[in-house]
C-alpha cells in the first residue's frame, strides 16, 4: 500500500490505489471491495473523500454498486484500467521525450504520431 501523499487530491489517490489492487489481483473481478467507511478508517481520511474516489471508479465502469450489499469490481475492469494507464503513460512520459529539453514549441522536430 502506498501512503497518502500531499501531491494530489486524496480521492484520486484512493481511486488509483483501488485500481492498483485490481491490477495486482488483490481485488479479482466480480468480488466485493471494502466499503467507503472502511477505506476512510484504513487510510485515515474523510469518508466523503473516500466516497469520491470510489464514485470516480463507478463512473469509469471499474466498480459497480449492488444495492444494499456494496461495491464490486466490474467484469473487464482490469483490461480497462490497463488501457487507460497505457494511454496516460504515453501522454506523460513518451510524448515529452519527443520535445527537445530547451527548445520552444515551434522548434519541435516533428510531431509524434
Amino acid at each position: 500500500m502506498n501512503p497518502i501523499t500531499e501531491a494530489r487530491a486524496i480521492f484520486l489517490q484512493i481511486a488509483e490505489q483501488i485500481e492498483n489492487d485490481i491490477l495486482s489481483g488483490a481485488h479479482p473481478e466480480e468480488t466485493q471491495v471494502p466499503s467507503t467507511n472502511e477505506f476512510a478508517a484504513f487510510h485515515r481520511i474523510n469518508p466523503a473523500t473516500a466516497a469520491k474516489g470510489v464514485n470516480l471508479l463507478v463512473d469509469r465502469g471499474i466498480l459497480y454498486k449492488k444495492r444494499g450489499i456494496g461495491m464490486f469490481v466490474a467484469e473487464g475492469a482490469r483490461a480497462r484500467i490497463m488501457a487507460t494507464r497505457r494511454e496516460d503513460f504515453r501522454e506523460q512520459y513518451v510524448l515529452p521525450c519527443w520535445r527537445k529539453p530547451t527548445s520552444s514549441a515551434s522548434a519541435r522536430p516533428r510531431s509524434p504520431t
Binding site: N37, A40, A41, R44, I45, N46, P47
Partner: peptide, 11 residues
C-alpha cells in the same frame, strides 16, 4: 481521537 472521530462520524 482522530481515529474515533472518523469512525463515529462515518456511522
Amino acid at each position: 481521537f482522530y481515529d474515533r472521530l472518523l469512525a463515529d462520524y462515518a456511522e
